[in-house]
Design a protein around this nucleic acid. Structure first.
Lengths: 132, 132, 132, 132
DNA sequence: GTGGTCTAGACCACA
DNA sequence: GTGGTCTAGACCACC
């Protein structure tokens, strides 16, 4: 696959977001085994140390669990996953509103910006809603 | 004044965003003189070199013009300012939609998230729309 | 007139180059009186101190002479003016060749670059050879 | 190595030009790793911050790409490099012609100045075409 | 006074 | 190891 990275942001975070996306979208289910650090490193085209850090971080956030000698698994605790989705949404919404109000946009304008963007996006490509 | 900074992001960027906000909201008009590097450094509570970098970046983006021995001024080119506002909105909207669609949210849900957040924000504090 | 300045280069030097151009092109002849510092400052739209420095610099290079209470005059020494023209040419040629050879251009290519540029320039505007 | 600098121009620019020369002359190829900031600082005999600024500017101009924790690399985009060479030539030619026409030289004279200079240069030292 | 450059040295996150 | 940011303090040219 070899993800394409923005070299201005930490790669380990971008990999993390990628996995979180798979988990939240249901492509990885509770209890599923993640690829090994080495496999993931190869498929993403990055240094194993970087993936290692990704996994550590995800484990710290209780989204995955590593079992000695067996591998790393998506948590069985669905509430953690839900929480992940909810808090991401909150964070992004806060950021969006905060940034735009700093630039002088009104609340009405923000909603317009969003709906305009979504409708324009819908026109050109119908099936790309979940493209990474 | 002494702005409060998020220690996870470069200060010079945060100062830049602060100034861009003032320009886009019309608190600083085309041709206006910015505070000198040293003044701004004092009022923001940071090193002059940091502000110097802020000003350099803003000049690179043509939002501001430095005149040797005179000071730093907001561009007279209104279209640059308009573009600033528009491109910021586009960037933020893209980010918002990109992040949420990665987490599996539908377009309807995104609009709901936004309107819910805005209405909740309206309840608690009416006067905070423009707080920095 | 109000010359347009590149704010990345010293204004006093740009004014100097402008006057040197007039002298070398024969628009100002040996013995001619230059405008007063104040007049020049107004017509160029800059600070009188800046023009003052321009004049000092030109006097240092013996291209003009200031006579107490009478004003500033182009030198009567034609050889200084000739030398001005010659040394400017030498300096510019050196710079041109030095820069281009650093970028890997051969001597042949340099001559081609020049003749191409000149012929293209000739097409569009015939009378602008001496525009400032 | 310890480059020798013209003290009237910013060092970080001179280093930049030096690297651009290497890239345009093919001494540094697309994808090649540049010396680290610290190494280059030592070899050029300047402060690391100065080289850091050089690298930042080059990255801004897309000639170079910094990868966190890995180093700084020449862009793989050959067209950027070609453009670099072409635009440098254009800029220098414009400057040359602009300056000389301001001093009253005709187009014929400009070409003569150049060819004379090149032939004289050829006599004295044959091997200095690419000296840095 | 203004901005621009440079040094010295520190700390940090990333790979 | 790498680059990125920040501070402190200096010096300079310019207006």
């Amino acid at each position: 696959m070899t993800l394409s990275f923005d070299h201005n942001r930490p790669i380990y975070i971008q990999v993390m977001e990628h996995v979180y996306g798979q988990v939240c979208r249901g492509e990885l289910n509770p209890g599923d085994k993640l690829p090994s650090v080495r496999e993931m490193a190869v498929s993403a085209g990055v240094n194993p140390n970087t993936i290692s850090r990704t996994y550590m971080e995800m484990e710290r956030e209780k989204v995955v669990e590593s079992k000695r000698g067996q591998g790393t698994f998506v948590t069985n605790n669905q509430s953690v996953i839900d929480e992940l989705k909810v808090s991401a949404a909150k964070k992004e919404t806060e950021r969006f509103v905060g940034a735009l109000s700093q630039y002088g946009y009104t609340e009405k304008e923000m909603e317009l910006l969003l709906s305009d963007y979504l409708s324009k996006r819908g026109e050109g490509n119908d099936r790309s809603t979940n493209q990474s």
